[in-house]
């Protein structure tokens, strides 16, 4: 097993790239259970990890391990049972203003009675940006996701991939420090998934955003990540935190063809198999 070699080689790189930057998102001893008494279900036992500014972290684990629960805790939608999560050192209590969310199911995250542009504008309304600033953010967000022509379309007039782009544009226009995505590309076709993964890398590059992606797709995690947080067991714990480093910029062709890519993927796959 070449686990050691991956870790040692990429760890040096990651230290160069991110550890000199501040910790943006920190999770410490996070635990979450539902219900109480006899019917109490412990979903997450103990999770700790850190994501530095500008880093992309993927959280992977077998299905049903509590990835979405973790994400909802990070988004302030569920209260924690124990431990803490913080952005820039400030404990997350309720949905943080510095965070934007992209949900897995785009059909349940876009308002069908609003056009793409109105959907993107929705979270900006209470920011009271002023008309010009708001319009320029909307134009830019639509442009970045390649939907400049589709602003007046309703979600149901768009394909699944385009709808997810609208959801991403909505998050972008909000200009969050941390972008959190819950299996964002799970329900689009393979071609669109590649495009959206590259869009994700592009966004990090252009906006210096910190991005946390929950995914069950190991290839996707390896391709996107600077850091993979593998979680497993029931209730969930961190199985391993794996730094990932490839020559930048990454590309769907060359990066995926690297021997190190295959190694990392095999390693993560084994971890997940063991964690079951």
């Amino acid at each position: 097993m070449s686990k050691a070699s991956i870790e040692s080689s990429s760890f040096a790189n990651i230290q160069a790239r991110f550890t000199n930057r501040p910790v943006r998102l920190s999770v410490e001893g996070l635990a979450k259970s539902y219900g109480s008494g006899e019917s109490r279900v412990e979903v997450i036992e103990d999770l700790s990890f850190e994501v530095h500014a500008g880093e992309i972290a993927c959280i992977v684990g077998p299905s049903g391990v509590g990835k979405t629960t973790l994400l909802k805790c990070l988004a302030g939608l569920h209260p924690l049972t124990a431990g803490s999560a913080a952005i820039d050192g400030r404990t997350i209590q309720g949905p943080p203003a510095e965070m934007a969310l992209v949900f897995q199911d785009y059909s349940r995250s876009l308002m069908p009675w609003l056009t793409a542009r109105q959907n993107i504008r929705l979270p900006l309304r209470h920011l009271k940006l002023g008309t010009t600033e708001e319009a320029s953010r909307l134009d830019e967000a639509l442009e970045v996701v390649g939907l400049a022509h589709a602003g007046s379309k309703y979600p149901w007039q768009l394909s699944g991939g385009m709808q997810q782009r609208v959801a991403i544009a909505r998050a972008l226009a909000y200009r969050p420090e941390v972008l959190v995505m819950d299996e964002p590309f799970a329900s689009v076709d393979a071609q669109t998934r590649f495009e959206l993964e590259d869009l994700c890398l592009q966004i990090r590059q252009d906006y210096d955003m910190t991005i946390v992606v929950v995914t069950h797709d190991i290839d996707e995690a390896v391709y996107l990540s600077d850091q993979i947080v593998v979680i497993g067991q029931k209730p969930a714990i961190v199985t391993e935190i794996l730094p990932v480093s490839f020559p930048e910029p990454r590309s769907q062709f060359s990066t995926r063809a690297l021997p190190a890519f295959a190694e990392a993927r095999t390693h993560v796959l084994q971890l997940i198999q063991q964690a079951r």
Binding site: L77, P95, M99, A100, D105, R108, L122, P123, R125, H126
Partner: peptide
């Protein structure tokens, strides 16, 4: 899902 969007993006009560 729609409720979560409203909460996650800190929409006001009237929104």
């Amino acid at each position: 899902g729609l409720r979560d969007v409203g909460r996650a993006y800190n929409l006001t009560f009237s929104e």
